[in-house]
Amino acid sequence: MDLTTLDFQQAKIKQVLFKSRLRSVLYGVREPDATLFAVRDNPLGQWIETVLKPKYGISPEVRSMERLLQDTLSTGQSLVRQYQRGQIEEARQGLAQVERCAEQIDDLLLRMSQQAVGIA
């Protein structure tokens, strides 16, 4: 199975979905649920397991992406705890940390996409 640029774009969309859900929690639009922060329930985590790993195994890029995803989810969970303790503005400001992780994941996705297209 060859991965296409579209596969990597879909992965980026999955990451945007998480950030949107987290932002919704921190702005009081929705209640948090535990699955929001579980790698196995996260759309990007599922994509890594079912699409990326079968093609790239445990390459350094895949390991980095898994670590960054875990950092993103842990940070998001911490921000929700802050929000629930009434530290609303601090929690919202912490979205910048999530964004930094997301940018690093985007960079990895772009590099891997370029490699995949170059290989194909």
Rank of each mutant, 00 (worst) to 15 (best):
V29I: 15
T35N: 11
V80N: 01
L73E: 02
S20V: 07
L26C: 09
A116T: 00
S74Y: 11
Y27V: 08
S20M: 10
L69H: 03
E66L: 07
Q104G: 06
K19H: 14
Q70M: 12
L52W: 00
Q70I: 08
L17I: 00
D2A: 14
M65D: 06
E31G: 04
R40G: 04
I119F: 06
G45D: 03
R85K: 06
Q114M: 10
S20D: 13
K53Q: 09
L26A: 10
G57Y: 14
I58W: 15
R23S: 14
R67V: 05
L95A: 07
G118E: 06
Q9Y: 15
D33N: 12
V98N: 03
M65C: 06
C101D: 07
F8H: 06
Q10A: 08
L26E: 09
M1F: 05
I105N: 05
L52I: 01
R81S: 08
E99F: 15
G45Q: 03
S24T: 02
R21A: 12
L22C: 09
V16F: 15
L95W: 04
R40V: 03
L52P: 02
L26Q: 08
R63Y: 12
M112K: 02
A38H: 03
W47Y: 01
Q70T: 07
R111G: 06
I119K: 12
K19E: 13
Q82T: 04
V98C: 12
K55L: 09
I48E: 00
E89I: 04
P32Y: 08
R40M: 07
L44I: 01
P54D: 06
D41T: 00
E90Y: 14
I58Y: 14
V16G: 13
A38N: 08
V98H: 07
A91C: 10
M65Q: 07
I58D: 14
Q82C: 08
A91L: 13
E89V: 04
W47I: 00
V80I: 08
Q93N: 12
L79K: 04
E66N: 08
L22V: 11
E99P: 15
D71L: 06
R67Q: 10
D2Y: 10
F18Y: 13
A34M: 08
Y56V: 03
T72N: 12
R85C: 07
R23I: 10
R81T: 07
G28T: 02
M112C: 03
L44E: 03
L44R: 00
Q93R: 10
E103C: 08
K14I: 00
G45F: 05
P32C: 02
I48N: 00
V62P: 05
K19L: 15
D33T: 10
R30S: 15
R40A: 09
A116R: 00
Q104P: 02
L69A: 07
Q97G: 10
E49R: 03
V29K: 13
P54I: 03
V62L: 01
S78G: 11
T50S: 02
Q77H: 12
R111C: 09
K12C: 10
V62N: 01
I119L: 14
K19W: 14
Q114F: 08
R30A: 13
